[in-house]
Amino acid sequence: MLLAAFDWHSLFFMFFALLTCGFAVAMLFSDNVVHMAFYLILSLGASAGLFFLAGAEFVGAMQLMIYVGGTLVLLIFGVMLTAQSRFISMKTRSGEWVMALVLGGSLLFLLLTAAFRVEDWRDGNPNAADIGIAESKTTTQIGMGFTGVRVDRLDAPEDSTLVPGMSGYLLPFVIVSVHLLVVLVGAAYMARTKRRATSTGAAA
């Protein structure tokens, strides 16, 4: 029976992959910057679906929250702030198109051949259905990973060179946090409010 051979995972993968790629291409060929932002939202949202399919539900939700809900709102804000009619649609010269498409096409060809080159990547996991639910729920594991406990590596032999408890992602996490803080301060500084100064230069 056809239905018996039916694979939801593949079907949804195809669906989300087509949406992701389709909206990305639509974004590329759209001149209107607001439309571009809209397509980008849809494309990134659909790729969150791919994340969910790959079992990375926390990252998928993160993608929706930070990328789609945060970054893109920021981006649309920027678009609206600069949305004068002459900047809404800016056409690209056809020469640039040809150049970019040729280069991009060859890059794509390169990447596609690379993608199917390694046999291990090509076949998928035949035992995917057998993966226990415990291994597939990664939220807590990620949380523990940040605090230095690799739940997924408990069975791995201890590396004597590592400080116990610090073998996870705590340090990168702190670095990224500080980085984010610095960036936010910097962005706030750059986008600070209007300053008026008298002719002598003193701030009024």
């Binding site: 939202i41 949202g45 539900e57 926390f58 939700a61 993160m62 929706l64 929250m65 789609v68 809900g69 945060g70 893109l72 709102v73 649309i76 729920k137 990664t138 939220t139 807590t140």
Partner: peptide
């Protein structure tokens, strides 16, 4: 597993 987070994330999209 991430229901709370998911709901908040999707509600965030509503702003569009």
């Amino acid at each position: 597993n991430t229901a709370v987070f998911f709901i908040l994330a999707v509600l965030g999209i509503e702003v569009f």
